[in-house]
C-alpha cells in the first residue's frame, strides 16, 4: 500500500553544505507524526523540501504515490499539502480575513467551499472570527499562530505540515494549540508535526522521528521513543525526568 506522504532517502544541500542525509519518513492517512530534534537538526528544511521551497538534492518525496520533486510550491498546495511555516509568517499588513482568503487562493473561484473552510477555521479559532477585520500584524503571538494554522487549513489539505506551532507561546496557549491540532486531526487531516517541545509532540502523535544534525537518529511509535534512554536524556529533560513520573504534562522542554 502506498503511504499518504512518503519521504525517501532525502538529502538536501545548502550551497556545499549537506543539511539532510538520507532521511526517510512516511505519514499514513489519519496519523499525527512528530519530528523531533534540536535547533539546526534539519526539521524545518525537511518540511520546506516537502512544500517545494528548497530544492531536493537527492531522494524523493511522494504524495499518494505521485513524485513531488521539482514541483513548485504553489502546485504542491493545490495537490493537498499545506505548510504552516515556522515563525507564523502571517502577512502583517493584511487583515485576518485577507490572510485566510489567501490560504484558499488555490480555490478562490469556489466561493462556497471557501466559506465552508472559513467557517471551519472560525469554529476552531473563534478569536479569529472576532478579529477578522483587524490587521494581522496587530494580533498577539498566539493569535498569529492560530491564524497561521487556520490559513494553512483554508486549502482543505490532506496533509498539514506544522513547523514549530508552539514556538514562543505561553504554556496555556501551547496546551490550547495542541488540543486544536488533535481536533484538526480527528476531523480527518493527517499531520506531520515538527516540534522542539518533545513532550507535547509525543503526546499527540502516534509515531515519531528524531533528527540529529541532519541524520535520522531514531524512529518508532511514541511509546517506544519515550522509553528510550538516549531520547529521554536529549529531548525529554533527561535527569529531571527520573525524579518525576512520566508523562510530565506541565513540563516545558
Amino acid at each position: 500500500m502506498t503511504s499518504l506522504l512518503s519521504i525517501e532517502r532525502l538529502s538536501i544541500f545548502y550551497g556545499g553544505i549537506q543539511v539532510l542525509h538520507d532521511v526517510s519518513i512516511h505519514l499514513e492517512q489519519g496519523e499525527i507524526v512528530s519530528v523531533l530534534g534540536a535547533n539546526g537538526a534539519g526539521k524545518s528544511t525537511l518540511l520546506q523540501a516537502v512544500s517545494g521551497l528548497v530544492p531536493i538534492g537527492s531522494g524523493s518525496v511522494f504524495f499518494r504515490g505521485e513524485k513531488l520533486n521539482s514541483i513548485p510550491p504553489y502546485e504542491i498546495v493545490r495537490k493537498g499539502i499545506s505548510l504552516s511555516p515556522e515563525g507564523r509568517r502571517v502577512f502583517p499588513t493584511l487583515t485576518v480575513e485577507e490572510n485566510l482568503n489567501l490560504g484558499a487562493y488555490t480555490r478562490k473561484r469556489m466561493k462556497d467551499e471557501v466559506r465552508e473552510a472559513k467557517d471551519r477555521v472560525f469554529s476552531l479559532f473563534p478569536i479569529l472570527s472576532e478579529r477578522r477585520r483587524q490587521l494581522s500584524g496587530t494580533l498577539s503571538g498566539g493569535e498569529q499562530q492560530m491564524l497561521a494554522i487556520g490559513r494553512a487549513l483554508m486549502s482543505s489539505p490532506k496533509v498539514l505540515l506544522l513547523d514549530e506551532p508552539s514556538l514562543g507561546l505561553a504554556p496555556i496557549l501551547v496546551k490550547q494549540i495542541f488540543d486544536i491540532i488533535s481536533e484538526i486531526n480527528s476531523q480527518g487531516t493527517s499531520i506531520l508535526l515538527v516540534e522542539q517541545n518533545a513532550h507535547k509532540a509525543l503526546n499527540i502523535a502516534s509515531r515519531g522521528y528524531v533528527l540529529e544534525n541532519g541524520h535520522l537518529a531514531a524512529s518508532g511509535p511514541t511509546a517506544s521513543l519515550r522509553s528510550d534512554k538516549k531520547i529521554q536524556e536529549a529531548y525529554l529533560g533527561g535527569a529531571a525526568l527520573k525524579k518525576r513520573p512520566f508523562p510530565a504534562k506541565t513540563g516545558q522542554s
Binding site: 513548485p72 510550491p73 499588513t93 489567501l102 488555490t106
Partner: peptide
C-alpha cells in the same frame, strides 16, 4: 480583490506567498 491581496502578500513575503498557492 483576492488577487490584489496576493500581490500585497507577494510584496511582503514571496516565500510564504508561494505557500498559499500564489504563482509568483
Amino acid at each position: 480583490t483576492t488577487f490584489g491581496a496576493a500581490i500585497r502578500a507577494t510584496a511582503h513575503d514571496r516565500k510564504t506567498a508561494s505557500l498559499m498557492g500564489i504563482n509568483i
